[in-house]
Design a protein around this nucleic acid. Structure first.
Length: 487
RNA sequence: GGUCCUGUGGCCGAGUGGCUAGGCUCAGCUCUGCAAAAGCUGCUACAGCGGUUCGAAUCCGCUCGGGACCUCCA
C-alpha cells in the first residue's frame, strides 16, 4: 500500500499517516450543536470527513468514527455565564430543552442522509456523558489545573502553560494571546483572562442541570469532546477533526484539558476543514448569510437562482480541496451540476460498452493516479480531474474512436465504483424503480415509433416527438446504434 | 491592534522551481436529415513591482486587494 499523507494542523506539515494500532484507526469529529437547523457550512465539514472516513475504510483500515452531538452546556456569548443555548431556544419556542434537542437531531440526521453521509460508528451525546465529564474535571482539579469559584469550575490556563504549552495548535504564545483578549470585567469570577469554564453553576431557573460535587450545574462546552473522545478512542488517538473555526478555542482547550488530565497529547493528527463562503464572506450563524440545506435543494432562498440536488452539491464540494475555502455561487454550482451529470452519464455508458481486442489506453496508470491524488492529503479535485479523463475514454470508446479490452472495461468499472461511489460517496439519483421499469418500456415504444418515422423520412413527425419529449423533460440522443434517452 | 491565510485564463478551481490539472462557458470542426449528445481543436492564465536562479505561478522583499482567527459558530 502506498503511504497516505495528510496535513497535520499541529505541525503545519503534510505527514505520513501512521496509525497507533494498525489496522485500527480512531477518528473523532466535532459534531453539531443541535439547537437549530444545521447549515451548509456544517455540512461541508461533515461531508469532508465522510469522504476521509470512506477513503480510510477503502484502504482497509478499521476505523472507529466518533462524532458527537452537543446537546448541553454550549453557552451563549463570550462569558461563561447565563443560559445555555438549549434553554434559550426552548424558551423561544416554548418547548422542553430536550424537545429542541430531539427536533434538531432528527433534522440533522435527515440532512446527513440526503448528502449520503455514512453514520459514524458512535454518536455520543453530551447529556449522556455527564458522569465522564465530572470525572475528568475532578482529575484536572486533582492535578491542580482548575479551581472552583462559587460552584463554577475554571481551567487555569496560565498555570497549565507553565508545565505545558498552551496554544500550539495555532502556533501562538500565551503572552500574545493575553494581549488579544479583553480585560476582565468586575463581575468575572475567573482568575485569568483565558481561563474557561469546565463546569458551570446552575441558576435557580436553569432547566438543564445535573448534580455534581460542586452543586447543581452543567458542563462547559470543551470538556464534552475531551471526555467522550478519551472514553471511546483512548487517551491518545489518531485523528481529530473539525472546522477551522474550532481550532483556536475549542480544540486548543481540548488539548489543554486532556494534557492536564493525563500529561499526554491526546491527538496525533489534527485535521481542519476550511470555511464555506457566500459571495466571499464566510457563511455563519452570526452573519446570517447562510441558507439551510433544504433551501438549497428547493432553491427557495433569495441568493439561489434554482434548486440543486444533494449530489450536485456534494460533487461541487469534492471539486475543491477540503483545506481551501469554498465560495458558493450559482454559476459555480451550475457548472458542477453539469459536470456531475457528464460523469454519471459516462458511468451509464460504461455499462453498455463492448470490448475490443486491444487497448489504446493505460487504464491501470489512471487507477494509480487516482490513488496518488487521494494519498496526497485527500486531493479530491485532482481525483475528479482523473475521473473526467476516464469519462472521456469511456465516451470515446463508445464512439468507436478508441478500443478497450474487457479487462480495461472491468478495471474502469472498478475505478468508478471505488472512487465515485465508495470514496466520494456520490450516488445516482434514483427514482422509484417500479415506475422506472414502466417508463423504460413506454420510452422504448415511443422511440420505435419515432425511428420508423425517421426511416420513412417523415422528419416533421420525428421532430415533433423529440420536441414534445424535450418539453416533458426527456432528452433524446441519436447515436449510430439507435437512439437513447435520459431524464 | 495582534496572529495567520490568500489573490490563477470569461467563471469555478488544482498545482510549491523546469514537463504549464480538471469542470463550466464561448468559437470552429467531426458525426447527424436537422438538432442534441459525444469526440477533437482553439481561447494558455498565474494581482503589481523588484530580487534569487540557467530557469518561478511556485522561493524572498515591498505595495495593493480579499479573507480568517483573537468573542458563540463546522
Amino acid at each position: 500500500m502506498q503511504p497516505l499523507f495528510l496535513y497535520n494542523t499541529l505541525t503545519r506539515k503534510k505527514e505520513e499517516f501512521k496509525p497507533i494500532n494498525p489496522p485500527l484507526v480512531g477518528l473523532y469529529v466535532c459534531g453539531p450543536t443541535v439547537y437549530s437547523d444545521v447549515h451548509l457550512g456544517n455540512c461541508r465539514t461533515f461531508i469532508s470527513f465522510d469522504m476521509i472516513y470512506r477513503y480510510l475504510v477503502h484502504l482497509g483500515y478499521k476505523v472507529r468514527y466518533v462524532r458527537n452531538i452537543t446537546d448541553a452546556g454550549h453557552l451563549e456569548g463570550d462569558r461563561d455565564e447565563g443560559d445555555d443555548k438549549f434553554a434559550k431556544k426552548a424558551k423561544l419556542e416554548q418547548l422542553e430543552p430536550m424537545e429542541i434537542v430531539q427536533k434538531y437531531t432528527v433534522g440533522f440526521h435527515d440532512v446527513m442522509r440526503a448528502f449520503n453521509n455514512i453514520p459514524p460508528s458512535i454518536e455520543p451525546t453530551a447529556t449522556g456523558h455527564i458522569c465522564e465529564q465530572i470525572e475528568m474535571i475532578k482529575q484536572i482539579m486533582d492535578k491542580g489545573f482548575a479551581y472552583e469559584t462559587e460552584g463554577t469550575i475554571y481551567f487555569d490556563v496560565e498555570k497549565y502553560n507553565k508545565d505545558f504549552s498552551y496554544g500550539q495548535l495555532t502556533n501562538r504564545k500565551l503572552d500574545e494571546l493575553l494581549e488579544g483578549t479583553r480585560e476582565l470585567s468586575g463581575q468575572d469570577e475567573k482568575r485569568g483572562r483565558l481561563d474557561f469554564a469546565l463546569w458551570i453553576k446552575a441558576k435557580p431557573e436553569t432547566l438543564m442541570r445535573w448534580p455534581s460535587p460542586w452543586g447543581w450545574g452543567f458542563p462547559g462546552w470543551h470538556i464534552e469532546c475531551s471526555a467522550m473522545s478519551s472514553k471511546y478512542l483512548g487517551d491518545v488517538f489518531d485523528i481529530h477533526g473539525g472546522g477551522m473555526d474550532l481550532q483556536a478555542t475549542h480544540h486548543t482547550n481540548e488539548i489543554a484539558q486532556s494534557q492536564a488530565c493525563n500529561h499526554k497529547a491526546p491527538v496525533n493528527y489534527w485535521m481542519h476543514t476550511n470555511m464555506l463562503t457566500v459571495n466571499g464572506v464566510r457563511m455563519s450563524k452570526s452573519a446570517g448569510n447562510g441558507f439551510l440545506p433544504g433551501e438549497l435543494f428547493t432553491g427557495d432562498h433569495p441568493l439561489l437562482e434554482k434548486g440543486y440536488s444533494p449530489m450536485a452539491v456534494r460533487f461541487f464540494m469534492m471539486q475543491t480541496h477540503y483545506h481551501s475555502t469554498l465560495d458558493f455561487s450559482n454559476e459555480a454550482l451550475q457548472a458542477s451540476e453539469k459536470g456531475f451529470e457528464r460523469l454519471m452519464d459516462s458511468y451509464s455508458t460504461l455499462q453498455t460498452l463492448k470490448a475490443g481486442s486491444s487497448s489504446s489506453e493505460d487504464i491501470k496508470a489512471l487507477q494509480t493516479k487516482c490513488y496518488e491524488a487521494m494519498n496526497d492529503d485527500f486531493n479530491t479535485p485532482i481525483l475528479v480531474a482523473h475521473l473526467f479523463d476516464a469519462a472521456r475514454i469511456v465516451n470515446s470508446a463508445n464512439d468507436n474512436k478508441l478500443s478497450l479490452t474487457q479487462n480495461d472495461i472491468d478495471l474502469l468499472k472498478t475505478i468508478y465504483q471505488n472512487f465515485v461511489f465508495d470514496v466520494m460517496g456520490l450516488q445516482t439519483e434514483q427514482e422509484n424503480s417500479k415506475a422506472n421499469a414502466v417508463l423504460a418500456k413506454v420510452m422504448s415504444m415511443v422511440l420505435d415509433i419515432r425511428n420508423k418515422a425517421k426511416v420513412d423520412k417523415n422528419f416533421p413527425l420525428s421532430d415533433e416527438i423529440r420536441n414534445k419529449l424535450t418539453d416533458a423533460g426527456v432528452q433524446i440522443k441519436d447515436g449510430k446504434e439507435g437512439s437513447s434517452w435520459k431524464i
